[in-house]
Design a protein around this nucleic acid. Structure first.
Lengths: 127, 127
DNA sequence: TTGACGTGACACCAAATGGTGTCATATAAT
DNA sequence: ATTATATGACACCATTTGGTGTCACGTCAA
């Protein structure tokens, strides 16, 4: 949870399901810490830590708006992930077929595990 | 390091740099545990654990060959990762440009962090 | 000015992770 | 038959991770 020197990389950042969900949420629209909090059954402090990690990894950006801090997705860093993935393309023979999918955005929206569903559950009050 | 019930998912599996390097190595050609061992400054036991995690995540497959166990990449599961990534395509405006990269394999080979360089360093003997 | 609200910064914790060593067993090689 | 290899399975350990609570501080609203 250290936010100073070590820096989290993208791979570590997206390893956590909660963080992946947050990324999708923050892609939709910028949100404040407490707003994000409402979607998870964890404390504000915990949410804040996840946001720090995502920030550290360069996946989200934030700015203060009055007394609240708004977070939003900063997707560029995900290109790093894509780059890594591209290396393995050579092992997928049906490359062209997938490419079609890729272009046509045929996959709709969510998939691969995480849902964007709100969880809403009395968040153990933090204060 | 429990290999039974919990199951590791792809995201967790690739979160570790060592594991990412192993994946690239196993893509090139199937290798036995000790062979892999030679490339990392860690114990055989540790390597074995990483391989278990990768297996659990469905990223590698193995089979016995005499007294050794050969591991090899099983790239299909990486599609799950690509699927997840595709969701964020909508946030990258220069989609077509990247597509060109994607098709032409323009990015060469390795990138995004991990090198495939052998590390070779007296592996603290395990027995 | 007086609170209530939204956060950041700590201190603290239990469980998960990445490693190490040792032992037992199956397979190859002499 | 005997010995050297290649691993799997454990037991054990220090750190890291994901969470919780508490407190202090800046900002908004009465």
């Amino acid at each position: 949870m250290d936010a100073s020197a070590p820096k989290y990389d993208v791979f570590q950042a997206i390893a956590d399901p909660t963080r992946r969900t947050m990324l999708k949420m923050l892609g939709e629209k910028e949100l404040s810490v407490t707003q994000i909090c409402g979607h998870f059954p964890i404390t504000r402090t915990a949410v804040s830590k996840h946001l720090h990690i995502l920030t550290d990894a360069g996946l989200v950006r934030h700015h203060k708006a009055g007394r609240e801090t708004r977070y939003q997705l900063q997707p560029e860093k995900l290109l790093e992930l894509r780059k890594w993935l591209n290396y393995f393309e050579q092992y997928w023979e049906n490359k062209l077929a997938m490419l079609k999918h890729f272009v046509e955005q045929e996959d709709g929206s969510d998939s691969a595990g995480q849902e964007l569903r709100l969880i809403d559950q009395e968040p153990k009050r933090d204060r």
